[in-house]
Design a protein around this nucleic acid. Structure first.
Length: 447
RNA sequence: UCCUGGCUAGCUCAAUUGGCAGAGCGAGCGGCUGUUAACCGCUAGGUUCUAGGUUCAAGUCCUAGGCCAGGAGCCA
C-alpha cells in the first residue's frame, strides 16, 4: 500500500480519503474558501480548503501559501464538474495539509504568457507549467511508442558512438573536441554508418540518442542537440523502408492518442487532425513534387511567397516548398527520388537514372515539414568508393565502411526520425525548443 | 553568413507631433462559500539595453555597440 496516491489515478478513489504529495501550482481565495491547484508530476488537481473544516491556523497558512510551495495533502476525493485540472472533474476536500517547504514568494514564472528570452532563461522553472509538462509527457510517450514498435517488430537497439573520428557525411558542421593523443574527435551527427555495420550482425537495428549539429541554423525547426531515432534494415529496399516508416509513425500517433489525450486537449490540439494519421501515406516522386510546386507557385498571388517558391529541377526543397506540398495533404507525405547531388554520398542511385537517388523524406502536414529522412544505401563496393573519392572524403576513415560491401553486401535501408520535430507536430506547437526539456540552440547553452 | 523586427516595473505590454513614466498580471495587506487568466479596495515596485550626440526638453530623433527573436541557407 503506497503512502500516497498520484493525481493520474484520482478517479479510482472517489469517496475515499487520500494523501497527495505535490506543489501548489495556483491559488485562488474566495472568503472562507481557498482553492489550490496542485500538481504532482502525474496531473493537476483542485484541492479545496473550507475555513469551517480546518483550524484557524491551518486555514490561515493555506490561504497564504505561495505558488510552488511543496505540500502533503490529506483529503477526500469527490467528483465535481467545475473542478479544473488534468484529468479534471475531480477535487479533493482538504482535511489536513503539511507544508514541506514554503516557496519564496518571488517565484518569477507567473501563469501568464512569457516572451521566449525570459521563458528560456527560466527553463528550469518553465518546465513546471502545464503546457510544458504536457508537451514533455507527450515526448516521452513518442519515444516509448517508438521503442515499443521497433522492439515488437524484430529490431534490436544498438548504441552507436557519440564521439566519432570524422564527418560521417562530410557536409555538415560538427562540434569538435580534443581526444587525448589521437587528435580531434567530433560529436556524432548520425549513428547510421555504425548501424550499417550492425545490420550485418543483427539484421534489423536502431539507435536512439542525442545527435549534434553545429550548423548555424536559426529557425523554429532546429536544435543543435536533438534526439534522433535511426533504424537500419538489411534486405530492405526503398519501398520496404516507406512501409516501416508509415507503420511505425501510425503506431506512435495511436499510442499518443490512447495515453495522452488529456495532455493533447490541454494544449488545445485539434485531435481530429491526428486521428486521420493512419498508414498508408501518399508517395510522390521528387519530379511530381516539383511539378506540384510549379502549379502552386502559379496560383500564389503574394509576390513574396511566390519568390520563395521559385524552383527548378535539381535543387533541394526548402521549408516554403515543403510547406506548400504538405498543405495539399492531411497525412504525412513521402517524397522520394531526390537528385543525387543534393543528398548524401552513400545513397543508392535510381536504376537507369543515376542523377536521382533512392532517398525518401517524410513530410508532416500543417507546415511542420520533414520529420523523417532516409534512403536505400549504396551496396556496391566500387561505386561507393568512387563516390567517396569524387566528394574528396578521407578515404582512410571510410575503410571499415567500405569493407561492409566486401563481405556479404545486401540491399539495405534506413532512416532518421527527429524526435522533437515529431513531438512538435503532434503537440501542434510553434517552436521545437519546447519539445525538449533543456534546448540547445545556436544562442543558448543555459540552463 | 545574410535579411527583418524587438529591447520601458518581477512578467506581458502602452506612452499621440519630442513635452509630468502608465496599465494589467505577479508580490504584500484587507474583503467575499465555488474560484477557473476570479473579482473589489489599498500598498510597494523604474539606470526606459549600453555609450555618445542633437535639443530648452529624448522612452521617442541621430551614430556606434550589445543582447534576443523570426526568416533564408543547411538539415531530423
Amino acid at each position: 500500500m503506497a503512502d500516497h496516491i498520484s493525481v493520474s489515478q484520482i478517479s479510482n478513489y472517489i469517496g475515499q480519503d487520500v494523501v497527495l504529495k505535490g506543489w501548489v501550482y495556483n491559488r485562488t481565495d474566495k472568503g472562507k474558501l481557498s482553492f489550490l491547484l496542485v500538481r504532482d508530476g502525474t496531473g493537476f488537481i483542485q484541492c479545496v480548503a473550507f475555513k469551517g473544516d480546518l483550524t484557524p491556523e491551518l486555514f490561515e497558512t493555506i490561504s497564504h501559501l505561495p505558488q510552488e510551495s511543496s505540500v502533503i495533502i490529506t483529503g477526500s476525493v469527490r467528483e465535481d464538474k467545475r473542478a479544473p485540472g488534468i484529468p479534471g472533474g475531480y477535487e479533493v476536500g482538504i482535511k489536513d495539509l503539511q507544508v514541506v517547504q514554503t516557496a519564496d514568494p518571488d517565484y518569477p514564472m507567473s501563469l501568464k504568457d512569457h516572451g521566449p528570452d525570459f521563458a528560456l532563461d527560466n527553463r528550469h522553472l518553465w518546465i513546471r507549467m502545464q503546457s510544458q509538462w504536457a508537451i514533455l509527457r507527450i515526448r516521452a510517450t513518442v519515444m516509448a511508442a517508438t521503442r515499443e514498435w521497433l522492439d515488437t517488430n524484430g529490431f534490436i537497439e544498438m548504441s552507436t558512438p557519440i564521439l566519432t573520428p570524422a564527418a560521417a557525411e562530410g557536409t555538415t558542421t560538427l562540434f569538435e573536441t580534443e581526444y587525448f593523443d589521437e587528435g580531434k574527435a567530433y560529436l556524432a551527427q548520425t549513428g547510421q554508418l555504425y548501424n550499417e555495420a550492425n545490420i550485418f550482425s543483427f539484421g534489423k537495428v536502431y539507435c536512439f540518442g542525442p545527435t549534434f549539429r553545429a550548423e548555424k541554423s536559426k529557425t523554429r525547426r532546429h536544435l543543435t542537440e536533438f534526439w534522433m531515432l535511426e533504424p537500419e534494415i538489411a534486405f530492405c529496399d526503398l519501398d520496404g523502408l516507406m512501409e516501416v516508416e508509415e507503420q511505425m509513425l501510425t503506431h506512435i500517433i495511436q499510442r499518443v492518442l490512447r495515453d495522452r489525450m488529456p495532455e493533447l486537449k490541454s494544449l488545445g490540439r485539434d485531435i481530429s487532425k491526428l486521428e486521420k494519421i493512419v498508414a498508408p501515406f501518399p508517395r510522390i516522386s521528387y519530379d511530381d513534387a516539383g511539378k506540384m510546386i510549379d502549379e502552386l507557385r502559379e496560383k500564389e498571388t503574394d509576390p513574396e511567397k511566390k519568390a520563395l517558391l521559385a524552383f527548378e529541377w535539381g535543387m533541394d526543397f526548402g521549408a516554403p516548398h515543403e510547406t506548400a506540398i504538405t498543405n495539399q495533404f492531411e497525412t504525412p507525405v513521402f517524397v522520394y527520388g531526390y537528385p543525387s547531388a543534393v543528398k548524401a554520398f552513400y545513397m543508392e542511385p535510381w536504376p537507369g537514372r543515376p542523377e536521382v537517388c533512392k532517398s525518401v523524406d517524410l513530410l508532416a502536414p500543417e507546415g511542420y515539414g520533414e520529420i523523417f529522412g532516409g534512403s536505400e544505401r549504396m551496396s556496391d563496393h566500387d561505386l561507393l568508393l568512387s563516390r567517396i573519392r569524387a566528394q574528396k572524403l578521407p578515404e582512410e576513415a571510410f575503410k571499415w565502411y567500405l569493407e561492409l560491401r566486401k563481405y556479404g553486401s545486401v540491399p539495405h535501408s534506413g532512416f532518421g526520425m527527429g524526435t522533437e520535430r515529431v513531438t512538435s507536430w503532434i503537440c501542434g506547437i510553434e517552436h521545437i525548443r519546447e519539445a525538449i526539456a533543456f534546448p540547445r540552440t545556436i544562442k543558448r547553452v543555459y540552463p
